[in-house]
C-alpha cells in the first residue's frame, strides 16, 4: 500500500482548508470501507486522508416528523437502522443500510460515504433519489445544496469541486400515505454488489387505490445511479394495477444502459430492471397499505 498522511480534522473549515490546500490527492475518510481498499489495491492515488469522524456536523442524525431527516455524512449504517422513527419514515433507506456489506461493514460504512464513493452499483443512492434527498456541501465559498441525483457524475466521480466536502443529507418528511422500498439482485443473499438495484417511493390517495406520485431509481445499469424520471411520471394519477406497474417497469428498462461484467451480463441486467422495478413498486405500495 502506498504511503500517505493522515489527519483528523476537528471542524468543517479545517477539513475544507485541508482539502483545498492538498488538492486532488486528498480524500475524506469517513467509514473507509471503500477508500482504504481502493488505496490498498492502487485503484486510487491518495496522499492525504482527512478523517472527518470527529467533526460534530457530520455525525448529526436528526429526524423531525415535520421537517424531515438530517443525516450526517459520517453516520454509520447501524445507527440509521437502529432508529425506529427513521425506520418508519424511510423504509427504503433502511432496506439499503441493512444490505451494504455485512454487519462489520455496517459498523463503519455510512450512506454519505456510499454516495461520495459514487459507485454505479451503490445500494445507498437509489433510496436517497426516491426520497428526494439533497446534499449539503461545504466548500471554500461556504455551503450549497444539490439534489442527490445530480451528485454522481461518473463511476467514482462526483459533483464536488476542489475543496468541497459533503456535510449531510437532507431528506424531506414523508407525505401521508407514502412509503418506499429498495431491493437489489445478487446471486448470494448477502456480501455482494448489486447486479441491479431498484428503489421506489409511492404516495397513494387516502383510499390507497390511486398513485398520487411515485419515484423510481436504479443502480448498476448506467455509469451512475439513475433517476427513472419518465417511469416515475407514468404512474402519477394512475390506479394501482399490474398494467400501471408493468408500464413503469418497461419505461425503467428503456433507460437502462447496462454493461456486461463479472457481476452480470447486460441482457440479464436489463431483464432484472423490469423484475426489480415491479417488486420495488409493489413493495412500496404494500407498505403503504400495511401501515395503520
Amino acid at each position: 500500500m502506498r504511503d500517505f498522511s493522515y489527519i483528523a480534522a476537528k471542524t468543517i473549515p479545517e477539513a475544507v482548508a485541508l482539502l483545498n490546500e492538498k488538492g486532488e490527492n486528498a480524500r475524506i475518510l469517513a467509514g473507509g470501507t471503500d477508500l482504504i481498499v481502493q488505496v490498498r489495491e492502487a485503484r486510487r492515488d491518495v496522499d492525504w486522508m482527512i478523517d472527518i469522524k470527529s467533526i460534530p456536523e457530520v455525525n448529526v442524525l436528526n429526524y423531525d416528523a415535520a421537517t424531515g431527516l438530517t443525516l450526517g455524512a459520517a453516520v454509520e449504517c447501524y445507527k440509521i437502522y437502529a432508529d425506529d422513527a427513521i425506520c418508519d419514515a424511510y423504509p427504503s433507506l433502511i432496506d439499503a443500510t441493512k444490505i451494504i456489506g455485512g454487519t462489520a461493514i455496517q459498523g463503519r460504512a455510512g450512506v454519505g460515504g456510499n454516495l461520495c464513493n459514487a459507485s454505479p452499483a451503490a445500494d445507498g443512492i437509489p433510496p436517497l433519489i426516491v426520497l428526494n434527498a439533497s446534499c449539503v456541501i461545504a466548500g471554500p465559498n461556504g455551503e450549497r445544496e444539490l439534489p442527490v441525483e445530480q451528485f454522481c457524475t461518473a463511476p467514482g466521480q462526483t459533483a464536488l469541486e476542489k475543496g468541497e466536502m459533503l456535510i449531510s443529507l437532507k431528506i424531506p418528511a414523508p407525505a401521508n400515505n407514502s412509503s418506499s422500498y429498495y431491493l437489489r439482485f445478487i446471486p448470494r443473499n448477502e456480501m455482494d454488489i448489486a447486479v441491479v438495484g431498484a428503489g421506489a417511493s409511492v404516495t397513494l390517495d387516502a383510499a390507497k387505490e390511486t398513485i398520487v406520485s411515485a419515484s423510481i431509481a436504479l443502480a448498476a445499469v448506467a455509469p451512475t445511479p439513475l433517476f427513472a424520471e419518465e417511469a416515475s411520471a407514468l404512474l402519477a394519477g394512475r390506479e394501482v394495477s399490474d398494467e400501471a406497474i408493468d408500464a413503469a417497469a418497461a419505461a425503467a428498462q428503456a433507460i437502462a444502459r447496462p454493461i456486461s461484467d463479472m457481476r452480470g451480463t447486460a441482457e440479464q441486467r436489463t431483464h432484472l430492471v423490469g423484475v426489480l422495478t415491479r417488486r420495488a413498486l409493489n413493495g412500496a405500495i404494500q407498505r403503504v397499505r400495511d401501515a395503520a
Binding site: G102, N189, M191, R263
Partner: peptide, 28 residues
C-alpha cells in the same frame, strides 16, 4: 450455483476476490 473463475478475452481473471468469487455465506 455461483463459483467460477470469470475471464475476459485477454485471459485476465476479473473476479479474483472474495467479493466476486461468490462462495456461500451462512445466509445462503
Amino acid at each position: 450455483l455461483n463459483e467460477e473463475y470469470i475471464y475476459n478475452a485477454e485471459g485476465e481473471m476479473t473476479n479474483a476476490s472474495f467479493l466476486d468469487y461468490r462462495m456461500p455465506t451462512c445466509l445462503d
